[in-house]
């Protein structure tokens, strides 16, 4: 159920948060008993869950590295979650100091935590907003204040689209974001897929996430490819995330175990 706009959310740590479950998969301790219980249930259903999170995080790292090398200096990370290790601004600034990053998340605890981590950083801000409202994100004064939309921006929609239902029209959301971007901007997407998985496993995973505020919407490679409408896919296209520009060929072995498909698109023109 969607919270009405005027009602502030309640902070209930008895309810698992997808951001803190993700932190747990990554080995972090920014989580509570309810998060760990849900994450453990997920691991019981899909033993690769921690691997998935790591592989996805590594994909994000390589993608940001690629983008900075491509000259991008502005990042809009939507669904940024709990900032643990390897945040976008840290990775980007290793190559391109002064890169500006906007983190967006709907989870108030994740946002509060990010604010604390980023306190004093003039080149990054945190905005509490929902990917379902791209127009609000784009119009947010903090976003407008930090990012110059006339210059290329990399929009990162990493490990978050599987929390957006088809009813919320993800293609339209991405289209709205795309329409606000300058040529040379990029879109990075990764999301859980059920390609090659059995039905039972998928059902089990969906049951776990139904305990959170964010049920899972698993999608196919074709659906994910369609989300890049208007963008030119960068090589190697939409692939299992370990296969996306691996540092060593052996890192891409057994790539389908990562469950996540991902890709990077470039806005031409």
């Amino acid at each position: 159920m969607q919270r009405p706009d005027w009602a502030p959310e309640t902070i209930d740590i008895e309810r698992p948060s997808v951001a803190r479950m993700y932190d747990y998969y990554l080995g972090g301790s920014h989580n509570f008993a309810a998060d760990r219980a849900a994450a453990q249930a997920m691991v019981a259903a899909v033993p690769e869950a921690p691997l998935m999170a790591q592989a996805n995080r590594a994909f994000l790292r390589r993608a940001v590295q690629f983008l900075t090398e491509a000259g991008v200096r502005q990042f809009l990370d939507i669904g940024s979650g709990i900032p643990t290790v390897g945040n976008v601004h840290e990775i980007a600034r290793r190559t391109a100091p002064g890169s500006r990053v906007v983190y967006v998340d709907v989870d108030p605890v994740a946002v509060a935590h990010s604010r604390e981590i980023l306190a004093g950083d003039d080149h990054s801000v945190v905005v509490q907003e929902d990917l379902r409202h791209p127009e609000r994100i784009l119009a947010h004064p903090d976003v407008r204040g930090l990012l110059d939309l006339d210059e290329p921006v990399a929009v990162l929609v990493v490990a978050v689209l599987h929390f957006i239902s088809d009813d919320d029209r993800p293609a339209e959301i991405l289209g709205n974001l795309r329409d606000a971007l300058a040529p040379g901007s990029h879109l990075v997407i990764s999301q859980a897929s059920d390609e090659g998985r059995d039905v039972e496993e998928r059902g089990e995973a969906q049951r776990v996430y139904r305990r959170t505020d964010n049920p899972l919407w698993i999608r196919s490679r074709a659906e994910l490819t369609a989300f890049f409408d208007g963008f030119e896919l960068v090589e190697p296209g939409v692939v299992w995330v370990p296969q996306w520009r691996p540092e060593a060929p052996e890192n891409a072995e057994d790539a389908e175990r990562a469950v996540f498909l991902g890709g990077v698109g470039r806005l031409g023109g």
């Binding site: 009602a7 502030p8 959310e9 309640t10 902070i11 740590i13 803190r20 972090g28 301790s29 920014h30 989580n31 509570f32 709990i82 108030p108 605890v109 994740a110 946002v111 509060a112 935590h113 604010r115 604390e116």
Partner: peptide, 22 residues
């Protein structure tokens, strides 16, 4: 321990923020 402390602090901040918003 640090991370636990930091996430709890984040919860408190988020609660304060939510209460203020309310």
């Amino acid at each position: 321990l640090d991370e636990q402390e930091s996430i709890r602090r984040a919860v408190m901040m988020a609660r304060t923020q939510a209460e203020r918003a309310l």
